[in-house]
């Protein structure tokens, strides 16, 4: 009456449990790989770049000599760029999200717009550069100005902002909308006074993350012909300018060894810029997020 061979069961159990443990370690190391890479990357860039991070680095324009090269034009240029990208992309993104979530009827047209947005998110940034080159730089003859680059970048990050805003608006429960209608508010009043205020933390968090993508994006700027060696600060929206990633790209490409350290210092400035933006996003998320 002995159907179960106790010994073979124990043996099989032990091997199965061992395999389980081995794989747990393997999966753990797979996760560790990404973390380790991140650590090496930060370590390399900090040790290479920190020596060049002097006050002069922020006061000088770029130069043929590594010791004199500075990041002033690029840093100010990136800030100018943000002043165009932030309002344009947020107005377009939030407007689209409000339309899709609050106004659009469930029909083929709104399905098409949604489908289009998810496809737009997958278009490579360099292709957006070609769009910007044709439409903004040439057809509207804005040249390689702050405005042309800003419009191009706004379209590039538009899908990200739309999706983030949609999620934030969707998270506002329907009860509060109905309560607002019940008090006699119109649709637009409800959107502006009830829905948007509670969705704003989510929208801003998503928008800032999208903007930080625009700060680091290089390829579209190269394609629309943003110059790298500029010895003046932008004077207006139609002025020529350069941006942080362009400047880093230029330095990283140069053959002299010393420029690698300058590039690393530039990357540090870029990363600090991004860190500040992300801290603001986290601060907003923690401070203003409201739960129903």
């Amino acid at each position: 009456m002995k159907y179960i061979n106790h010994e073979s069961v124990v043996k099989r159990m032990i091997s199965r449990l061992t395999i389980n443990k081995v794989f747990k370690v393997i999966f753990f190391f797979a996760t560790l790989f990404a973390l380790l890479t991140l650590a090496i990357l930060f370590y390399r860039i900090i040790t290479q770049g920190v020596g060049y991070l002097t006050p002069e680095f922020f006061q000088n324009f770029s130069s043929r000599f590594p010791a004199k090269a500075g990041i002033k034009a690029a840093l100010i240029g990136s800030i100018w760029l943000m002043f165009v990208v932030a309002p344009v992309s947020i107005i377009l993104g939030v407007g689209t999200a409000i339309y899709l979530e609050e106004y659009a009827k469930k029909n083929k047209l709104s399905d098409f717009i949604r489908m289009n947005i998810s496809n737009l998110a997958g278009v490579p940034s360099v292709v957006f550069g070609l769009l910007g080159l044709t439409i903004f730089v040439r057809a509207l003859s804005l040249g390689n100005s702050v405005l042309a680059a800003g419009f191009t970048m706004s379209l590039l990050i538009l899908p990200v902002i739309i999706v983030a805003s949609q999620e934030a608006i969707r998270a506002v429960p329907n009860d509060v909308r109905e309560a607002s209608y019940g008090m006699g508010a119109t649709k637009w009043q409800t959107v502006v006074k009830i829905v948007l205020p509670s969705a704003i933390p989510g929208i801003l968090t998503g928008a800032i993350l999208a903007l930080s993508r625009a700060v680091g994006e290089t390829a579209p700027l190269i394609v629309i012909g943003i110059p790298v060696i500029i010895q003046f600060l932008p004077t207006g929206l139609l002025s020529q300018f350069t941006a942080l990633p362009m400047q880093i790209y230029d330095w990283a490409k140069r053959p002299q060894q010393d420029f690698q350290f300058v590039a690393a210092a530039g990357i540090l400035v870029l990363m600090i810029f991004l860190l500040i933006m992300n801290s603001i996003a986290i601060f907003i998320r923690n401070k203003f997020s409201k739960r129903y």
Binding site: L35, R44, G216, T218, I248, A252, L270, L274
Partner: peptide, 24 residues
Amino acid sequence: IIKPILEVLAGIPTIVYGFFALTF
């Protein structure tokens, strides 16, 4: 702890990765 670190990795500009590839 790990998920935000992965998000940081995803948020690093590609120009920085390019520099990392070339110099490291």
